[in-house]
């Protein structure tokens, strides 16, 4: 993978707040990359620095090996789709899409054909003369996308691209974004607070926390092998159990359970995914637990079962539909999991 964009020790402060803390990041040619994090994690600041709306206090931002940290936004070969779409309200759809081409001084005939291609790409041919206020939310988003894509950027920034869409449209738009990304060959960098969105769309995900990268990697890797308690909790709300590492096992005295497996000595907690825990008929020893069903929530393809282990510990268990009806509230159950599903966390 050749790096298209490389951030080196990017630091940004807003008054007393440290928004980005010596952050390093590499984004490859034609990659779909997601910056995932909660509010205040620094993901939006990073996106705005890449777009040129903010200047880092220190560090370098290399695009194809050239430092662009001080280049103003209008001179960067990077385009952005804004969360609010930021369509020019006084211009037609065609004029919105033409805006960047006009600034670049593209010849009229070429501009016209590129605008037509871009609008066809997002399925909005025939909407050229509409004004933004005559469009639905989804259509506005497509215009914003066409307006960025018509510039043929090598790097397209997307700020919460699905954030303002309703549930039905999100899935479809997500697939369309991926198709567009493959078609154009541009690198897409998306900011989102929604872990499902990040895992579903991106080739690689960087999870940000407090202006630093908590973990970066392909979705499956960071989902299945979270590096820290924070990552485990953020991605799909795994069960995180505190305890002490011993030889090939991990003891959780509060929950009264012991996990056996390949546990490194520096492990401070373990993560257990809800869907990896089975409700077993009986069992004892390591990698099992007993508890009382506190509550059951039906979720369609599975039921979320909260099991109280005592000692203030509750495990979230995903009980699949094909496993028969879930246990009733108040029932005593035995839980079991495989040693391989125990994820040791070093921090």
């Amino acid at each position: 993978m050749t790096a298209l964009l490389r951030a080196e020790a990017i630091t940004k402060r807003f008054g007393p707040t440290l928004a980005l803390d010596a952050l390093d990041l590499e984004i490859g040619q034609g990659e779909f990359f997601a910056l995932l994090g909660g509010s205040g994690s620094g993901k939006s600041t990073l996106l705005r620095i890449i777009a040129g709306f903010e200047t880092p206090d220190s560090g370098r931002l290399l695009l194809d090996g050239t430092d662009i940290a001080a280049t103003p936004p209008w001179a960067r070969p990077v385009n952005m789709m804004f969360q609010s779409y930021a369509l020019f309200p006084h211009m037609s759809v065609a004029d919105n899409v033409a805006y960047g081409l006009r600034r670049a001084g593209a010849p009229k005939a070429e501009a016209a054909s590129r605008i037509a291609t871009a609008l066809a790409m997002v399925g909005l041919s025939g909407f050229e003369r509409r004004r933004p206020h005559e469009l639905s939310g989804g259509q506005k988003q497509r215009v914003a996308l066409a307006r960025s894509l018509v510039m043929r950027p090598r790097l397209l920034l997307l700020d919460e691209p699905l954030g303002a869409l309703d549930a039905g449209l999100r899935e479809r738009t997500g697939f369309e974004l991926r198709a567009l990304q493959r078609e154009t060959g541009a690198a897409f960098v998306m900011v989102t607070h929604d872990q499902e969105e990040a895992l579903a769309l991106a080739d690689r995900v960087a999870l940000l926390d407090g202006g630093r990268i908590a973990q970066v990697g392909p979705p499956r890797e960071i989902y299945e092998r979270p590096a820290s308690r924070f990552v485990a909790r953020f991605l799909g709300a795994a069960n995180v159990l505190e305890g002490r590492a011993a030889q090939d096992r991990f003891d959780c005295p509060d929950a009264g359970i012991t996990c056996a497996g390949a546990i490194p000595a520096d492990t401070v907690a373990i993560a257990l995914r809800p869907e990896r825990i089975r409700i077993a008929a009986a069992g004892e020893g390591p990698n099992t637990a007993r508890g009382i069903v506190q509550d059951v929530a039906f979720r369609g393809d599975d039921s979320l079962v909260l099991v109280d282990l005592g000692g203030g510990t509750t495990l979230r268990v995903a009980h699949p539909e094909e496993g028969g009806p879930p246990p009733a509230r108040g029932a005593a159950v035995t839980l079991a999991w495989e040693a391989a599903d125990v994820v040791p966390l070093a921090s």
């Binding site: 777009a51 040129g52 103003p72 209008w74 930021a86 600034r103 510039m151």
Partner: peptide, 9 residues
């Protein structure tokens, strides 16, 4: 910002 992003000084 959108205008600047699209190349407008």
């Amino acid at each position: 910002e959108a205008a600047a992003d699209l190349g407008a000084r």
